[in-house]
């Protein structure tokens, strides 16, 4: 979101699109689970990817993560957080399921 003055007076398209996308992605995820009978792994992969897309929508369209004023540091913080989150979740499951 730019804070350029005349930009500010425009209709908030970005937010409306963001909302629409997130509602649609949510419904797709539900549809994949309820109406498609894909193999479990495929279903889970798809819905996790959809969730990640949604996270990006929030970050980019609502949270202004990409605007100026210290963008680099901000992105670093969130990216590192995601890295650790993946390590923690994936690592724990790998360890605690005792399969491979």
């Amino acid at each position: 979101m730019s804070s350029n003055n005349h930009e500010l007076n425009k209709f908030p398209w970005k937010h409306v699109i963001g909302l629409a996308l997130s509602l649609i992605l949510t419904l797709i995820a539900l549809w994949v689970v309820v109406s498609l009978s894909l193999p479990t792994v495929a279903t889970l992969t798809i819905i996790v990817l959809l969730a990640v897309c949604q996270a990006f929508i929030q970050l980019l369209m609502f949270m202004h993560i990409n605007e100026n004023h210290g963008r680099g540091y901000r992105i670093l913080a969130i990216a590192f957080g995601f890295y650790i989150a993946v390590v923690v979740v994936y690592g724990s499951l790998w360890i605690m399921w005792f399969t491979v």
Binding site: V87, G91, I95, F98, V100
Partner: peptide, 21 residues
């Protein structure tokens, strides 16, 4: 700092983990 988050299991090697782990 990046790697320090990927070694934690060395504190419990003996808890019956799989060989790959």
């Amino acid at each position: 700092s990046v790697l320090s988050f990927t070694t934690w299991l060395h504190h419990f090697f003996t808890m019956g983990n799989t060989a790959w782990v």
